[in-house]
């Protein structure tokens, strides 16, 4: 059965590109724009992976991830954002909240490699 990925991003172009790329690589993808929509999507079906932006229209991506973790404690969470963090911040702060941090300047193949790594756990 295909792995199910939930993509949360306020930019429609980013959502479409990610969904198209991940679908063509054999995943089932649902995209939402806000934290509220993400919570509703999670209630309908538990994802195998959540990919979220940092800046959402109605919330902070890290906050949303923290909330989702309450219902999905074992689901890997990836932060994919245009905000660039220092390596110290990534190592000391972000790694405690998310399973993986990737800047949006990363290539899609890097995104895919990390998705495969997280889903292989």
């Amino acid at each position: 059965m295909k792995k199910y990925i939930l993509v949360v991003d306020d930019e429609a172009d980013i959502r479409d590109l990610l969904a198209q790329y991940l679908t063509s690589n054999g995943y089932r993808v649902t995209t939402v724009a806000t934290a509220v929509e993400a919570a509703q999507a999670v209630k309908q079906e538990r994802p195998d992976l959540v990919i979220s932006d940092l800046q959402l229209e109605d919330s902070d991506g890290l906050d949303m991830i923290a909330h989702l973790k309450e219902t999905l404690p074992d689901t890997p969470m990836m932060l994919l954002t245009g905000v660039l963090f220092d390596s110290d911040v990534i190592q000391n702060t972000l790694s405690k909240i998310v399973s993986c941090y990737l800047p949006k300047t990363s290539s899609l193949s890097e995104v895919l490699a990390n998705v495969q790594r997280l889903l292989a756990r």
Partner: peptide, 11 residues
């Protein structure tokens, strides 16, 4: 093409 669009979008 997807990668290029993604790069442009990211930039």
């Amino acid at each position: 093409n997807l990668e290029r669009r993604w790069s442009i979008q990211a930039l």
